[in-house]
Structure formats: C-alpha cells, structure tokens
C-alpha cells in the first residue's frame, strides 16, 4: 500500500495527467481543475480499484469522464465563456517550423481538433498507453480508436502546417 499512498500516486501521474487535461480543455485553469478533481476521485474512490496495477488507466479514465461531465455542464450554460487567454499565449510562443515543436504549439493544435479526435490524439502522443489501453480509457472499441488516431493525425498535421506556415 505504501507505493500507492496518495502522494506517491500524485508524484507518478500528475504530470501526464495534466498534459492530457491541457490537451482536452481550453485553459490551464480548466486543466488544473480536471487534475485536481481526478485526484479527489482517487482519494475518495481509489480504494475500490481491485487491480492496483491499473492505477494509471483508472486516473486517465476518470479524468476523461470528468472532462465529459464538465463539457456537458458547459453545454447546459452556453452563456459561460471559456477563457482563451492561454490559447493566445500559446500561439505567441509558436516556434519556427523547422525546429522541434514546442509544447504550446502542440497543445494549441490539439485543442483545435474536434473533440472526437482530441482525446485519442493526446493519449497517443503522451506515449504512456498502448492503443488497447487508450480504447479502455476512452471506453470505445479498439477499431474506433485506430480510425480516430488515423483521421486525427491527418487533421493535426493540417493544423500544424497552418501554424508552421510563415
């Protein structure tokens, strides 16, 4: 149980969870809220997870569910404007196209994808999960994940080409 103390779990997973959350949501604040809410769920319900080797998948699945729940809430109140401040900051930091893509550019490009492709693409590039695990996290069939990755990569490429254009 020591390896799964709350602090150990946070240390091991909060960075990739944040990257995933930032790719899904529209601001750092929203991403932070998603990660916090995910760890709160872990603190209150994590003991129900019998297979302790699946902590990572559990956390990513939970974060994705929280995101979907948040989005549904936002859909109920369309008058609530989400912040785009972080997006502007990220766009200003876009590097020259011939160099390594920076995190801000990638996150911005991911955010501009349709939500259908955003989550599988983010999980794919986080490289923490196999495509089978991605299917489990998103709770969709493996074939659906494969097709969304394939289509999502094409769309993401277009987004990056636009951003890298002078």
């Amino acid at each position: 149980m020591d390896a799964l103390t709350f602090e150990n779990v946070v240390n091991a997973h909060y960075e990739p969870l944040y990257r995933f959350a930032l790719s899904l949501s529209r601001s750092e604040a929203d991403a932070g809220d998603l990660v916090q809410q995910t760890f709160y769920r872990w603190a209150t319900k994590g003991d129900q997870l019998r297979d302790r080797s699946k902590v990572k998948s559990w956390l990513f699945t939970t974060l994705h569910r929280e995101f979907l729940a948040t989005r549904r809430q936002a859909d109920k109140f369309p008058g609530t404007e989400l912040s785009t401040e972080d997006g502007r900051e990220l766009a200003a930091q876009t590097p020259p196209p011939e160099r390594q893509l920076d995190g801000a550019t990638v996150v911005e490009a991911l955010r501009e994808l349709d939500e259908t492709f955003r989550a599988p693409m983010a999980l794919f590039y986080l490289e923490d999960h196999s495509y089978r695990e991605i299917a489990g996290i998103l709770e969709v069939p493996i074939g659906t994940v494969m097709s969304r990755i394939s289509r999502g990569k094409e769309l993401l490429r277009k987004q990056l080409v636009k951003k890298e254009a002078p």
Binding site: Y18, R19, Y40, T105, K153
Partner: peptide, 27 residues
Amino acid sequence: SLDVRIAGGLQQVRAPSRLKAEILAQH
C-alpha cells in the same frame, strides 16, 4: 518524424508546480 516532433513537444509541457502543492494540500 512528425510524430516524434509532436510527442517531444507535448512532453515539454509541465504542470504548474503549485498544482501539485494544491492537490496535496487539499488532500
């Protein structure tokens, strides 16, 4: 080549240090 660039870019993203502190403090 593109995948490596994208994945490398995403790995550059760092969570704010205050976030971890907030999570632990909240807990």
